[in-house]
């Protein structure tokens, strides 16, 4: 590799002819190296450090290098951790299901039922929230849902009793869907838009009703996009810290909240790292499962 760089360097501004040996691999290396270095420095190295730290000890609030599995056993065997794991996985699964259930019809409507003008507007409306602060959007939901909030004021004005909306799974799912829906719908709209319209025409010409077209033509064609949207929704909601904190007041805590709690009480970075590593492992599992799903999909086609 250094040879090829040397050769190109020697030819200088004369520009190496395309046939010169090595020049084919030169540009990709030059263009790719920063990305690779970036990944190593800012992703691989911190990740390795995170793993290393899980074996360390904390003595009088200071991290001390050690090689002990105490943190792993302490965390994995603790009741709060196990409960938080089940709760977080359950919450994220529900959020994923809801996201797909809401996003599919929404994306279908945007892609097939709206005029081009309205479609562009809808897509813009989906993109804007992605670039606005998620924290702000959650605070806005707090104002809407709280006992003295917008919904309750209207409801009480109509003579109803106050509703307890904030706190609990309803508020949490509203918060998580705020995060996942725009992304999921965008992914699915793009996928729907990419479908070859002649396939739909052919199905209709052969006498398929719309529902049959959707089930047998549209959904199979965007299978990969559905898996992508679902796994993205799961990853986003599994690791989310903001919604559980502000929509349910950490009651009960998720794994992300447990990480913060672990650090807050006694600077237990090693134990927090254990939780972090297990969360990463769970996400990798979900990602691999998604990959397998898309692969079997390809095989079936």
């Amino acid at each position: 590799m250094t040879d090829s760089i040397h050769v190109d360097g020697a030819t200088g501004s004369r520009r190496a002819p395309a046939s010169r040996v090595g020049s084919h691999s030169f540009m990709p290396v030059v263009l790719g190296a920063p990305v690779l270095i970036w990944q190593l420095v800012f992703f691989a190295a911190p990740l390795a450090f995170l793993l290393v730290v899980t074996f360390w000890k904390v003595a009088s609030f200071k991290l001390e290098p050690a090689f002990s599995f105490d943190n792993w056993t302490k965390v994995l065997l603790s009741g709060p951790y196990q409960k938080a794991l089940v709760y977080t996985a359950g919450t994220a699964s529900l959020a994923t299901l809801l996201t797909v259930l809401v996003a599919l019809p929404a994306a279908y409507t945007i892609a097939f039922r709206l005029s081009p003008k309205l479609r562009n507007l809808a897509v813009t409306c989906l993109i804007v929230p992605v670039f606005s602060s998620y924290l702000l959007r959650i605070y806005a939901w707090q104002i809407v849902l709280s006992p003295e909030g917008v919904i309750n004021s209207v409801f009480k004005g109509l003579g109803g009793a106050g509703l307890s909306l904030l706190g609990g799974q309803l508020a949490l799912q509203i918060g998580l869907l705020t995060l996942t829906l725009p992304v999921a719908i965008l992914v699915l709209v793009l996928a729907f838009s990419g479908i070859d319209r002649t396939l739909i025409e052919a199905a209709e010409n052969l006498g398929c009703r719309r529902s049959k077209v959707i089930v047998h033509v549209l959904l199979p064609s965007i299978r990969n996009a559905i898996v992508l949207a679902a796994s993205t929704a799961f990853i986003l909601s599994f690791g989310d810290y903001v919604s559980p904190l502000f929509m349910t007041g950490s009651n009960p805590p998720t794994l992300s909240i447990l990480i913060v709690d672990t650090v807050k009480s006694g600077s237990q970075w090693p134990r927090a790292s254990v939780i972090g590593i297990t969360m990463l492992a769970a996400l990798i599992l979900v990602f691999v499962a998604g990959q397998l799903l898309t692969r079997t999909g390809k095989g079936a086609q």
């Binding site: 603790s78 709060p80 009960p252």
Partner: peptide, 12 residues
């Protein structure tokens, strides 16, 4: 740590 553990347990 004992007190903290009880608190964590209570929360969860």
């Amino acid at each position: 740590e004992d007190w903290n553990d009880v608190w964590s347990e209570f929360k969860s």
